[in-house]
């Protein structure tokens, strides 16, 4: 699914997700700041996505998985409601640097119709403002600064693409007038 060579996919893998252990694991207490103890079942631990995902979907002999995966705080109900109210005012970068990538991974794991819709709407609405900001030379310094600081990694790439191409056209126009 995710590209092996893509840095943003790697960074998404490293995002922490809350996991609840459903079994007692001997000697794993250091994960919960209690070294040399057993990790009791029911403990909540934040694990990187790659580890939590593997533990959650792999099943042992008794056909119950080792941990139960929860939604990370970046995709909590509170954030989704804020996005529904106004996508432009939410600081996505503060939630997660690779917000959409994380959302896509969670959508792969969970059936969550509503989250998919909210993410799609958010992406579209924000993309339109990103394009406006990228074409407006003063946008990055003036009132748009707060919005631009809150862009997640994929949105920054979009901004860069839009900005670079409009800059290329402007450069070309300046070039022909020099000749």
């Amino acid at each position: 699914m995710s590209s092996y060579y893509s840095p943003s996919a790697l960074l998404t893998d490293a995002q922490k997700v809350p996991c609840t252990f459903t079994l007692t694991v001997p000697g794993l207490g250091y994960l919960d700041a209690t070294p040399e103890a057993d990790l009791a079942s029911g403990t909540k631990v934040s694990l990187p996505l790659w580890l939590g995902e593997m533990l959650a979907i792999s099943q042992n002999l008794s056909t119950s998985s080792l941990v139960k995966l929860d939604f990370p705080p970046a995709l909590s109900e509170r954030v989704l409601n804020a996005l529904k109210a106004d996508p432009r005012t939410v600081d996505l970068r503060q939630q997660a640097a690779n917000f959409y990538a994380l959302g896509i991974r969670m959508l792969d794991l969970f059936e969550h119709e509503e989250m998919g819709e909210v993410l799609t709407e958010t992406f579209k609405t924000r993309a339109a403002s990103i394009a406006d900001q990228a074409h407006n030379p003063r946008g990055a310094l003036g009132e748009g600064a707060d919005f631009l600081r809150g862009l997640d990694e994929s949105e920054r790439e979009l901004f860069k693409a839009a900005h670079d191409s409009s800059k290329a056209v402007r450069t070309w126009m300046a070039e022909i007038s020099k000749k």
Partner: peptide, 25 residues
């Protein structure tokens, strides 16, 4: 032609992003 050249990177990026989000659905 010039407008397409200017807008292609952005529009392509948006469509790709939407496709990724909608992939699991």
């Amino acid at each position: 032609a010039m407008e397409i050249a200017e807008a292609r990177a952005f529009i392509g990026g948006v469509i790709d992003g939407l496709r990724k989000i909608g992939a699991s659905r």
